[in-house]
Design a binder for these strands. Structure first.
Length: 547
DNA sequence: GCCGTTTTCGGCCCGACTGTTTTCAGTCG
């Protein structure tokens, strides 16, 4: 059976083809359906089996029919027919920055160009001269874009944990340059999407020119792609595009809302506004010429009688209706976290490092801190912290902070059996030898599943965690649940664990990104194991030995 | 092709920027 991702690509492909064929509204309809499927947390096949495809936003009679055909046969006649009408290279042209469907169609129909390479040849041969709307400057841009596309294919999306430190540096750089009053990040970064295609920065400033100049001169900026009175677009050395916009303070909320998106969320808001005789744009909410809101996001939402909606769930997946009914979930906050359950130290960590970590936990106000004292590595090796270090963490008496021990093992044995060390609880991880969950539920102390990522592994381990009463860790990277996995876990009534960042100074993005993923999945405090009270979490831990 | 507390037909977010334009079209987000 085809995967959701294959359906996403199928409908995107149809949209591109329809675009080139000159269709007006169908392409957007297929893109809408494609985005909608992309944000599903369940297989299309399962939804189809329940006869609920029409509940997916953007799916109507025609697209439901096409999904069913695709699920049943693995292909789609309609798509195959469209592909016969358009040379494959014409769709490739759409990927060239600055070239859209109108231009691609004209190159195809007028000089008869059927792909990027042919277009480059046609330009060199002067075949575009005299084409209306394509003067020397435009042709030069296209030529440069074609060359750039050939040199570095796919300017793909960046994982958010990779983009995170880049974004922090850009913000810090702009602040240091001066002239900046408020500065915030928007776009899919703010919505905590797993990957970002670009970064959106929003600034208020009395001196936009000064800010743009400073932005252009940041060390990571490779080229300035465009610059106007209110926005500047640059490309960073590693290829990421960044948009910087300067807005007036009284419009900051409207602009932040607008540039945070998502597109579908904004379109929905706008149609609500229209129904009320209001107009929303990035400058504010207007009744006629009168601005009625715009300084803060909450103000903008309030004009539509909506509560402020957290950015992580602005995907037009029902959050607007929920806000209208006053039924938005109260999403987990950083300050809800009561402790850390998965703190790794270096294999040769000293007692001093234990103390430093405990200090960090105290600074965050955590009520418990579980150190992994022995662990099985991904390739089946075994590591135990130095005896003096383990003895030291047992001896620590820190008022208000309960220190615990965890042992991290593969799923093969009864958890913890191989370890000579007492453990308050067990962390289970898939290993190279045994990536699948054990058939029997674990016996003994409470269990946290960590280092699980990837769609199929996540599915299996969520099912196991459910039967075992275990929790699963959320966060960035291939070894933790992303927002889709977190939602699946939540829907299976499996508790989540969020990293606090304690004990891992390198992992600044980890804590923030994990929290974003959890919120994106609609997670509330009660879904998170390490947001319960310290007493509740540590109740099952072994009694402390006397010092 | 989708969608509906104004609609089952007639709409479909809206503005910045660029280049090529004598008033606008295309692209992008």
């Amino acid at each position: 059976m085809p995967t959701n991702q294959e359906a996403v690509e199928l409908f995107q492909g149809i949209a591109d083809l329809l675009d080139v064929l000159g269709e007006r509204f169908k392409p957007e309809a297929y893109r809408r359906a494609s985005r909608s499927i992309e944000s599903l947390t369940e297989d299309l096949g399962a939804i189809a089996a329940r006869n609920e495809l029409r509940t997916v936003p953007g799916v109507g009679d025609a697209i439901e029919e096409k999904i069913r055909e695709f699920l049943a046969t693995g292909h789609l006649d309609y798509y195959d027919r469209l592909r016969k009408e358009v040379p494959p290279g014409i769709v490739e042209l759409l990927k060239i920055p600055g070239l859209g469907p109108k231009s691609a169609r004209r190159f195809w129909l007028e000089p008869g160009v059927e792909g990027p390479a042919e277009l480059a040849d046609a330009i060199r041969a002067g075949k575009l001269e005299g084409m209306k709307g394509f003067g020397p400057k435009k042709v030069g841009q296209i030529q440069a874009a074609l060359a750039a596309a050939g040199a570095s294919p796919a300017g793909g999306r960046l994982p958010i944990e990779v983009a995170y430190p880049i974004a922090q540096r850009l913000v810090a750089g702009l602040r240091a340059a001066g002239g900046v009053e408020a500065i915030e990040l928007a776009g899919s970064f703010r919505r905590a999407r797993e990957s970002v295609g670009d970064l959106d920065l929003l600034v208020t400033s009395a001196e936009p020119e000064r800010v743009f100049d400073a932005f252009s001169r940041l060390p990571e900026v490779r080229e300035v792609r465009l610059r106007g009175g209110t926005k500047e677009t640059v490309v960073l050395t590693q290829g990421l595009q960044v948009d910087l916009r300067v807005v007036a303070p009284e419009a900051f909320g409207a602009a932040w809302q607008y540039f945070t998106g998502s597109k579908d969320h904004n379109v929905h808001l706008r149609s609500l506004a229209r129904d009320r005789g209001l107009k929303i744009n990035e400058y504010g909410v207007f009744r006629g010429d009168e601005r009625v809101a715009g300084r803060t996001e909450a103000e903008v939402y309030a004009t539509l009688d909506l509560a402020w909606i957290p950015p992580e769930i602005r995907e037009d997946r029902g959050e607007i209706d929920a806000a209208a009914r006053g039924e938005l979930p109260s999403l987990v906050e950083r300050t809800d976290l009561t402790g850390e359950l998965h703190c790794h130290l270096a294999p040769a960590a000293t007692p001093r490092e234990v103390d430093r970590t405990i200090e960090a936990a105290r600074a965050l106000g955590l009520g418990y801190l579980g150190f992994v004292v022995a662990w099985e590595t991904a390739d089946g090796g075994r590591i135990t912290l130095p005896a003096a270090t383990v003895a030291h963490l047992d001896s620590v008496r820190s008022p208000g902070l309960r220190v615990g021990r965890a042992v991290e093992v593969g799923p093969s044995g009864p958890p913890g059996e191989w370890s000579p060390l007492r453990a308050d609880y067990t962390v289970v991880r898939p290993t190279g030898k045994t990536p699948d969950p054990p058939t029997d539920p674990p016996k003994g102390p409470p269990v946290l599943v960590a280092h699980v990522g990837g769609e199929s592994a996540a599915r299996k381990w969520i099912a196991w965690a459910r039967s075992a009463g275990a929790a699963i860790e959320v966060g960035p990277g291939a070894e933790r649940l992303d927002s889709t996995g977190a939602r699946a876990a939540r829907e299976a009534d499996v508790r989540l664990v969020l990293p606090t960042g304690v004990g891992n100074p390198e992992a600044d993005p980890t804590r923030a990104v994990a929290l974003g993923f959890a919120r994106r999945a609609g997670t509330t405090k009660s879904d998170v194991r390490n947001a319960a009270s310290a007493a509740e979490v540590t109740r099952a831990w072994a009694p402390r030995p006397r010092a």
